[in-house]
């Protein structure tokens, strides 16, 4: 009986594939071919049509100038080292501060209400101001108070501004994570006799942080790009170095070069975040 049904469903003993599998395989091949053809068509169209635009020669000379790129790229690459340094100093500080703010935002005790209020105001204010303004105001304002070198360095205060701005965003990410942990987890922890602190430390935070890791990676990518904003208060990092070359050569190619460098640095991180998210989704739906 069962063999009969199998034959009826079209099992082909020679290839070991059902009729459905054969059909699906064909459909997949077909869609692959269609995708390849349409991609090729688009690429060819761009390749043919864009150079036909009357301004193409000008755009090519101003944006895709090989001579300018080769002359400027090495120094831009070394300017990017400064971006990386600032990033690796700022990122841990941001996470530490953000976690503290998020915990302050979550205190429930009435006596500690000032802490909670401070966290609310902190997050509201710093999230509402454009990052570039925070950098300007802190980067120029605080050193102007009369601090002596080296404590008036734009590197220090620029990093402080980035840390303040980003910790407000990331505190909200942590808070979302903390609030996403089901009340039953807290009840269980309490019933085991854990204190508020231990509950947070051993039960809530480990789950909460794991849950927001993909979002955090996304913010890290944004941070790496926003480090370039520090160039507005003096440091000659990649964006500024590209700007100097742009001005020197009256050519935008250095900006394209800077974009390439940022791409190479951020795309792996973006893919990593995608991977983490996919993994988490798979685990959740299991």
């Amino acid at each position: 009986m069962s063999t009969d049904t199998n034959t009826a469903r079209g099992k082909s003993p020679a290839r070991g594939l059902t009729r459905r599998q054969v059909y699906e395989r064909k459909a997949k091949q077909k869609s692959l071919i269609i995708a390849a053809v349409s991609l090729a068509a688009v690429v060819i169209l761009i390749y043919i049509i864009v150079p036909l635009a009357p301004g193409w020669e000008g755009v090519k000379r101003s944006f895709f100038n090989w001579a300018v790129l080769t002359k400027t790229f090495p120094k831009m690459l070394s300017a990017f080292v400064l971006d990386l340094q600032l990033f690796f100093i700022a990122a841990p500080l941001i996470f530490a501060l953000a976690l503290i703010i998020a915990l302050m935002r979550n205190v429930t005790s009435a006596a500690l209400y000032p802490l909670r209020l401070f966290a609310i105001v902190y997050i509201d204010v710093l999230r509402s101001i454009p990052v570039i303004l925070t950098i300007y105001l802190i980067g120029f304002g605080i050193p102007g108070l009369g601090l002596l070198p080296p404590y008036n360095s734009p590197y220090i205060w620029g990093t402080v501004a980035l840390v303040l701005a980003y910790s407000a965003y990331i505190a909200e990410v942590f808070r979302t994570g903390i609030e996403s942990i089901h009340e039953s987890q807290r009840s269980a922890a309490r019933s085991l006799g854990l204190s508020e602190t231990s509950m947070m430390r051993y039960v809530v935070l480990p789950q909460a942080i794991r849950r927001v890791v993909p979002t955090l990676v996304n913010f890290l990518v944004a941070l790496l790009k926003d480090v370039a904003l520090l160039s507005f208060i003096g440091p000659v990092e990649l964006l500024r170095q590209a700007g100097v070359y742009k001005s020197l050569f009256a050519n935008f190619t250095p900006y394209v070069g800077a974009a390439l460098i940022f791409l190479c640095a951020t795309i792996p991180a973006i893919r990593f975040a995608d991977y983490l998210m996919a993994k988490q989704n798979a685990e959740r739906s299991r």
């Binding site: 120029f140 050193p143 002596l148 008036n152 507005f232 208060i233 003096g234 000659v236």
Partner: peptide, 15 residues
Amino acid sequence: LYDDVANTTAALQAN
């Protein structure tokens, strides 16, 4: 490096 004369002057005045 700074964007304009005003910012450059501000940096000088802030030492």
